[in-house]
């Protein structure tokens, strides 16, 4: 790793100022993606501005119909503190990597990184969440902008994520056995306004909503409603672990299973409008 200076400001304002003064500066959250990247010398920032001491960026707060999660909240904290209010989101957080990764990695870091195989982007997109930054509020639809790319500007810091809580939801991930990232992952959320299906791990352009599946499930919430659908394999990614046809198959299968799981486990009435 190239040498780098680390600073640990106590406030968001101080962090923003430090980033403004150091054009080559970068935010450090849990470091669970950034440190491996630096070890490989794939990045060489001069200054890392740690969010670790900024209290305001941490914690899960409960509001009517909504969770507000501080950007520097770890996966382990979300797994614990969202368990009652939004069990599918808590389960997703509790399934990221391993316990040590979950004790450091944060939701803000995961969203800013926008790894095409990451878990949180699926939850955030399926929930219709809002990403709150130091400058503005960005709807999930506008936030993810292709592989490892987001709508964030230079020096802009995610401060929180506002996540509407659906009536019922499920996340199913087919883990890549070595990395535990999603070879394919599907988040199905049932809201009063309709069903939302977000897919990670599979899109050629990163996380996406599978709108045909949403429409089919709005008409009839049943795994069989998905039977006639097929994803466009040209828009599905392939790598040494799995080709596009296999991933497309996985996405459909995981969506069916998520619907099946919801039909079996959701509270009575939660799935009917």
């Amino acid at each position: 790793m190239y040498d780098v200076e680390i600073t640990r400001p106590l406030t968001l304002e101080a962090a923003l100022r430090l980033l403004e003064e150091a054009p080559d500066g970068q935010v450090l959250a849990g470091g669970q993606t950034l440190i491996p990247t630096l070890k490989q010398r794939l990045a060489a920032p001069e200054l890392l501005v740690s969010l670790g001491r900024i209290e305001d960026l941490r914690g899960v707060s409960h509001q009517p119909g909504m969770l507000v999660i501080g950007a520097a909240t770890t996966h382990a904290t979300v797994a614990r503190d969202a368990a009652e209010a939004y069990p599918a989101l808590a389960a997703l957080a509790g399934g990221i990597g391993d316990p040590a990764v979950r004790n450091r990695g944060t939701i803000g870091g995961s969203l800013a990184n926008n790894d095409p195989a990451a878990c949180y982007p699926a939850a955030v997109l399926a929930s219709g969440a809002t990403i709150v930054t130091s400058a503005r509020e960005i709807a999930a639809e506008e936030f993810f902008d292709g592989l490892f790319t987001t709508a964030l500007d230079e020096g802009e810091i995610i401060t929180a994520v506002r996540v509407p809580v659906p009536r019922a939801a499920a996340y199913l991930k087919f883990a890549q056995p070595a990395s535990r990232f999603a070879l394919a992952g599907v988040f199905v959320a049932v809201f009063d306004a309709g069903v939302r299906v977000a897919v990670t791990g599979a899109g050629d352009d990163g996380v996406f909503r599978w709108e045909e599946a949403e429409a089919a499930l709005d008409r009839r919430f049943d795994p069989e409603a998905l039977a006639p659908l097929a994803l466009d394999e040209d828009a599905i990614m392939g790598d040494i672990h799995a080709g596009p046809a296999y991933r497309a198959h996985l996405v459909k299968l995981l969506t069916r299973r998520a619907v099946d799981e919801l039909l079996r486990n959701a509270a009575p009435g939660a799935l009917r409008g």
Binding site: I6, R8, L28, G31, Q32, I35, P36, K39, Q40, L48, S50, G52, A76, D98, P99, A100, V101, N103, R104, A178, S179
Partner: peptide, 26 residues
């Protein structure tokens, strides 16, 4: 070198972390 093996796990303020994936300054 990839934060995957866990041979470096220690406790920091009571929580298991990978000591290879945390800066000493943190």
């Amino acid at each position: 070198d990839t934060s995957q093996c866990g041979a470096c796990v220690v406790h920091v303020d009571g929580l298991a972390v990978k000591a290879c994936t945390m800066f000493a300054a943190e």
